[in-house]
């Protein structure tokens, strides 16, 4: 089973996770920028985070045979903090980098005017830089947040086929599907979606424009949830080709809209006899 996790926060995971993911079939992923688990105190903190997503994380991932791309943005939560918003001025330079395949994750957290502004501005940046957008739907007041998201999207230059709406569930997926956007499900141990419910949605709505991710962040989460959904799909009677479509071809098609996805030749750092991270581990996995 080949797996592309279209939304996973590897900065908060260990090398053990990379190793287990690779062993489960994950060979590509997109890491959206997000918060640090605690509030940032300056825009410069984003610069360090972007550096990690453009340098260190791809390097770590490559040692386990995983192609790492990223999505960059000012996240919805911190869009409310005037200490952080100056990063919006720095974003255009970063959105030109080779491994940036989307603007994200953007969207709503507490649904405030500052979030309205950041969302609209970053949708425009996505259009200007030829990138699709990863838009998360809020955890609280989700349906109202989705409606507001769709209203802002409708006013933006970015067409729905270049937008994915994430963290969807049974209460929001039908409205989201009507919009023409791509649809994504974050599968978690206790929150958001689980494997069985995700499979039920796939059975009801089909596989077109569907993405499944593990998101795996600072909280209780599981970077192998993509694989578990694949297994659950097979157990529920879907075929191998269906699984490949949801877990590989769909994310490749969506992020391929950027024109920057580089999967053919995994960019592996010249693996000299084991390096600082792989030290003591078998090289050349």
């Amino acid at each position: 089973m080949r797996i592309f996790d279209p939304h996973i926060h590897m900065s908060s995971r260990t090398t053990d996770d990379y190793e287990r993911m690779r062993a489960s079939g994950v060979t590509a992923l997109v890491e959206p920028s997000f918060w640090l688990g605690q509030p940032r105190t300056s825009a410069a903190s984003f610069v360090d985070h972007f550096d990690a997503l453009l340098g260190w994380e791809p390097y770590r991932a490559a040692q386990y045979g995983i192609a790492h791309h990223c999505a960059l943005a000012l996240n919805p939560k911190e869009a409310n903090d005037p200490r952080c918003t100056p990063i919006l001025k720095e974003l255009p330079r970063y959105l030109e980098k080779d491994s940036v395949v989307a603007v994200g994750e953007i969207g709503y957290d507490s649904i405030t005017p500052a979030e309205d502004e950041a969302l609209a501005a970053q949708l425009e940046l996505a259009a200007r830089h030829g990138l699709p957008a990863l838009v998360h739907t809020p955890h609280r007041d989700k349906l109202a947040g989705l409606e507001r998201t769709l209203a802002v999207l409708a006013e933006s230059e970015l067409p729905p086929e270049r937008v994915v709406l994430d963290h969807l569930n049974e209460t929001t997926v039908d409205r989201a599907a009507d919009s023409g956007c791509w649809l994504a499900f974050s599968v978690y141990p206790d929150t958001k979606m689980d494997e069985a419910r995700t499979v039920a949605v796939l059975r009801r709505l089909g596989l077109d424009r569907m993405l499944v991710n593990s998101a795996a962040d600072w909280g209780k989460s599981d970077p192998l949830k993509t694989r578990k959904v694949g297994d659950a799909m097979l157990a529920a009677g879907f075929g191998e080709d269906d699984v490949d479509r949801v877990l590989w071809r769909n994310p490749v098609e969506f992020y391929g809209l950027s024109g920057r996805l580089d999967l053919g030749e995994r960019e592996r750092p010249e693996l000299f006899e084991g390096n600082s991270i792989a030290r003591g581990a078998p090289a050349g996995r």
Binding site: W56, Y59, P269, E270, F272, N275, S276, I277
Partner: peptide, 9 residues
Amino acid sequence: RANDARLIA
């Protein structure tokens, strides 16, 4: 100061 072998080289 980095740990990226490509940069160090």
